[in-house]
């Protein structure tokens, strides 16, 4: 019985590692897609803006935590910095700060789509390794 349990655990571990490897960037995309879908589902523009801002803010905080880890490579840190800058720009546009024009209320659904589509072609994320991407996802789940 004990052997069977051990074998089953090893099998599950192997399966989760394989699945996680396949889903590094995909998980990140899903995160923004969920936020965009939620934002589009509410009618109140203030709520839409808050949902989108919160999702960007959470991601930025997770990036700060991961960037501070000593195990993260210099290449990944450079990638994280670019990713953070890109997220900051998007937050600025939502809030209309740092020289950015505030996204109009009636354009918030389009902006939610823009966030998702920009992430799907973001070459900044491509430069971040799979392990670091997974760390970012884990941090978001655990801390925020």
């Amino acid at each position: 019985m004990k052997t069977r349990t051990t074998l089953l655990s090893i099998l599950l571990l192997v399966c989760s590692v394989v699945m996680a490897q396949a889903q590094g960037k995909e998980k990140l995309q899903q995160y923004f897609n969920s936020a965009a879908t939620e934002a589009k589902s509410v009618a109140d523009p203030n709520q839409k803006r808050e949902i989108l801002t919160n999702s960007l803010s959470k991601m930025s905080k997770a990036l700060v935590v991961v960037e501070a880890m000593s195990s993260v490579s210099e290449t990944d840190k450079a990638g994280i910095q670019r990713f953070k800058a890109s997220l900051q720009e998007k937050q600025d546009a939502l809030l209309g700060v740092n020289g950015q024009s505030r996204v109009a209320d009636e354009k918030l659904n389009d902006y939610a789509n823009y966030l998702v589509q920009d992430m799907e072609q973001a070459d900044t994320v491509v430069t971040i390794s799979l392990i670091t991407l997974l760390l970012i996802i884990i941090i978001i789940i655990l801390l925020f």
Partner: peptide, 12 residues
């Protein structure tokens, strides 16, 4: 590679 994208309804 990762080739997932989402449409405007949120479907992958």
């Amino acid at each position: 590679a990762n080739y997932v994208f989402h449409d405007t309804v949120g479907i992958a």
